[in-house]
């Protein structure tokens, strides 16, 4: 009984340890806390993405393309095609932004496929206080990342709305759409409902974008943690018992299955984030 309680406390501790960010305080209030792990792995992912992309872009020639160049070009053309058939504005920002969203989110999500304890273990082995070596390596499993990107997209949506329609029309549409009315009295009547709906609409977009990605990645990470718990604390000595063997095999199979499935999820979520951003920006550019 006591050992079971201890094991359960171990499990809770293990899971909680995995869900705790490496935080650095920059000020007095809780807001001025920096999730160092998120920032570090975002920078690493960004560097990988930028270096790869700029490298291939610089090497791209108009001659016969090699295999890698063909792959990069087909991704670029795919994104460019999506943007061109949805977005009819003048801005040159949208296609590169969409590609960045897809590529960067995919790389950040990909960190989730690394063995769950590998990076935290490496961090703990060089940390002076291993029991306080917190590390959550997947930046997209941190709401700050997804919300930060979604708010970035939100700003771009507003910027495109203003630059494509002009400031006057942009603000007029706050009160004249989606309910359209004729005559001054009717217009006055629909102005407030329109304004409220517009505020809700604008607020919901970044929230739904960020929560969808965050939820998927957080849940995926949590499931990896739960799979890892199966043989928690089982040293080499405990592989004498049949139950440890069974759990070990079960852990291997479930981790393998979930990783394979997760490849689809990380790609799909990166794609959804990109395609919804394109759609939102395109809607902002269309006049009502």
């Amino acid at each position: 009984m006591a050992s079971e309680q201890a094991a359960s406390a171990d499990m809770t501790g293990y899971i909680q340890h995995h869900l705790q960010n490496w935080q650095v305080s920059l000020g007095d209030s809780p807001f001025w806390t920096l999730n160092m792990d998120t920032v570090v792995f975002t920078v690493v992912s960004s560097l990988v993405f930028m270096l790869l992309f700029v490298f291939f872009a610089r090497r791209a020639t108009a001659g016969v393309p090699g295999r890698l160049q063909s792959i990069v070009e087909s991704v670029v053309l795919f994104v460019d095609g999506l943007v061109q058939e949805t977005f009819h504005g003048k801005s040159k920002l949208i296609a590169p932004m969409s590609l960045t969203i897809f590529g960067l989110i995919w790389i950040m999500n990909f960190i989730d496929l690394l063995p769950i304890d590998f990076l935290p273990w490496a961090w703990a082995s060089i940390h002076p206080e291993p029991e306080h070596a917190y590390l959550r390596a997947v930046p997209t499993a941190d709401l700050n990342t997804t919300l930060g990107m979604a708010l970035g997209v939100f700003l771009v949506i507003q910027y495109i709305g203003i630059s494509e329609k002009g400031l006057g029309k942009f603000f007029a549409e706050f009160f004249s759409a989606p309910f359209e009315a004729k005559g001054p009295v009717a217009r006055l009547l629909v102005a407030l409902p329109n304004f409220i709906l517009r505020l809700i609409e604008e607020a919901v977009r970044p929230i739904s974008l960020s929560l969808r990605l965050f939820g998927n990645m957080y849940a995926g990470e949590l499931i990896f943690v739960l799979i890892a718990v199966m043989t928690l604390g089982a040293g080499l000595a405990s592989f004498t018992s049949a139950s440890t063997w069974l759990l070990g095999i079960g852990q291997f199979l479930s981790a393998f299955g979930w990783t394979a499935f997760h490849i689809l999820i990380i790609t799909l979520q990166a794609f959804i984030f990109m395609i919804l951003s394109i759609v939102y920006v395109s809607l902002a550019a269309e006049s009502h």
């Binding site: 999730n35 930046p139 919300l147 990107m149």
Partner: peptide, 13 residues
């Protein structure tokens, strides 16, 4: 929790 990381991440993006 939402903290200053949010701003950093947005800028990095």
């Amino acid at each position: 929790d939402i903290n200053v990381t949010l701003i950093i991440q947005g800028l990095a993006f």
